[in-house]
Computed example of a mutant assay.
Amino acid sequence: MSSPASPQRRAVRSRRTAVDVAVVGAGDPASRAVLRALVTAAAHGEIGRVVAVDVDRPPVGGVEFRLADPGDPHLVDALRGVHSAAYVAASTDLAADLVLGARVRRERNLRRAQTVITAAAAAGVRHLVVVTGAQVYGAQPGNPVPLDEDAPLQAPSDEGQVGDLMDVEQLIAVARDVHPGLAITAVRPAALVGEGVDTVTTRHFEAPRLLTVRGAASAWQFCHVDDLGSSVVVVLARGLGPVVTVGSEGHLGQSDLERLTGMRRVELSMGAALGTADRLHRVGVLPAPASDLAFVAFPWVVSSRTLREQGWAPAYDNETCLGVLLDTIRGSHAVAARRLDRKDAALGAASAAVALVGTAAIMRRRRRKGGTL
């Protein structure tokens, strides 16, 4: 799937008055960061009212709270009277997603995204920002660094979380034709970091070693949730679209990761890594599909070009983001996104490769003893 072929203006409206903005679903770290940034912008007159729409009141002051379930059609009532809205479709709570399971998670995420789009159009919202992720571009050996915003979307549409985002992007593409009065901007951040963020990417750094793929040149780029928040403010205040990418400037290489984390690498061939991960995923040991290994091996760096043309700049560089990530995962242990307790992590022994195989043995032993995963 690729971006819409027909050219669209970068600005979807002229900025004449401060707009009232609703943030739909305000309980996750990324949405709270968007709310905080909007409240700050409202204090400076760049944004009008800031409305939080969710089933629980968020811990952010200076917002008007409206009670509504983001997945319920009655959401339309909570969106009336606002010019613009923002919705974070990217998940930052992997633990909760794993409890749901892949099928239920996919159905919930698509239902929410479809409900938000339909309700926004029905309520007369003029501009909707949907936060997905730069992962939708796919991680490919031949990817340019950085990728252009209008680069084709080449990520696999499998059962993983990236597949969820690919489906949301498809919903956006269809909605642009179905609801011509609603301008929709897809904001695609690099790997998110921040307090409370739990993703496959953050768990990569909970492993005993950094898994690398022989012959691959990885490129790591991050986006702090606060930078995501400030970027959404710029998109909403200046009506940017239809696609905006956001991330820290540049990227880190594998040697940079090892220097900054103090972790050592373990190197496998792509065939060995994919084969092991695929087998363990099929038996339910590893939560992420084998295709996610591509995001460790190959680049998917974005440029933030449109935002920079508007004078925006990230407050966090990649090194600082990595430090934030390491602080948030302190004390946690994982192998290929499967969280382990300390005893299991110790059994991971010499390397991530050994840990992958060791995890399978641990889980088989637990099943024989009647335990749960």
Rank of each mutant, 00 (worst) to 15 (best):
V99Q: 15
S255P: 02
A313G: 12
A90H: 14
Y137W: 10
M263F: 12
R366L: 13
E206N: 04
T245Y: 00
A52H: 07
L236C: 12
M1S: 14
G275P: 05
L252S: 11
S255M: 08
S14P: 09
D278L: 14
G61E: 14
A191R: 09
R342C: 02
V324P: 05
G25E: 03
A86E: 11
R32S: 02
P73F: 12
P189Y: 03
R342D: 13
A288E: 15
A207R: 08
P289H: 10
L322G: 04
G181F: 08
T185N: 03
G142M: 07
D226M: 01
R259I: 06
G262A: 09
P314N: 03
L286F: 14
A360R: 10
Q114N: 11
V125N: 11
D198V: 03
D77N: 10
R80D: 13
V232M: 01
G27K: 08
T276Y: 08
D93F: 06
C321Y: 12
A30R: 01
V243S: 00
V244R: 00
R305E: 13
L307D: 00
R13T: 13
R203F: 05
G196T: 06
L228C: 01
E64S: 02
E258M: 12
R368G: 03
Y87Q: 02
V63R: 02
V53N: 01
G262K: 11
R10K: 11
M166T: 05
R126W: 04
A85F: 07
L94D: 13
T132K: 01
A272L: 15
G262P: 08
A219G: 03
T328V: 05
V104L: 15
D177K: 09
V60M: 06
S6Y: 12
G62V: 04
H333A: 08
V357A: 15
D150K: 02
L307T: 00
Q114Y: 09
V129P: 01
G348S: 13
S269P: 11
A216E: 10
W220M: 05
T185R: 02
A355Q: 03
A219I: 03
P141N: 09
T372Q: 14
V76L: 05
D54H: 00
P144Q: 10
R49S: 14
E107W: 09
G348L: 08
A315S: 15
L110E: 13
V53D: 02
A139N: 07
A41G: 10
R364K: 13
P242T: 04
R305T: 01
T359C: 12
P58D: 10
G311C: 06
A360M: 09
W312I: 08
A273E: 13
V225Q: 11
E267I: 04
D327Q: 15
E309K: 12
L257K: 05
A18E: 14
V285H: 13
A42Q: 14
V246N: 00
E195S: 12
M270C: 08
F298P: 04
T306G: 00
P287C: 02
H224T: 06
G371M: 13
V136F: 01
D198S: 11
G61L: 05
A352N: 09
P73G: 10
Q170H: 11
D20K: 04
A155T: 07
I362G: 00
P156N: 05
G358P: 06
G358D: 09
S303D: 12
V244I: 05
T245G: 00
H44V: 07
G229R: 04
D292K: 04
Q154L: 15
L165D: 08
I362A: 04
G323K: 13
F222E: 11
L128F: 04
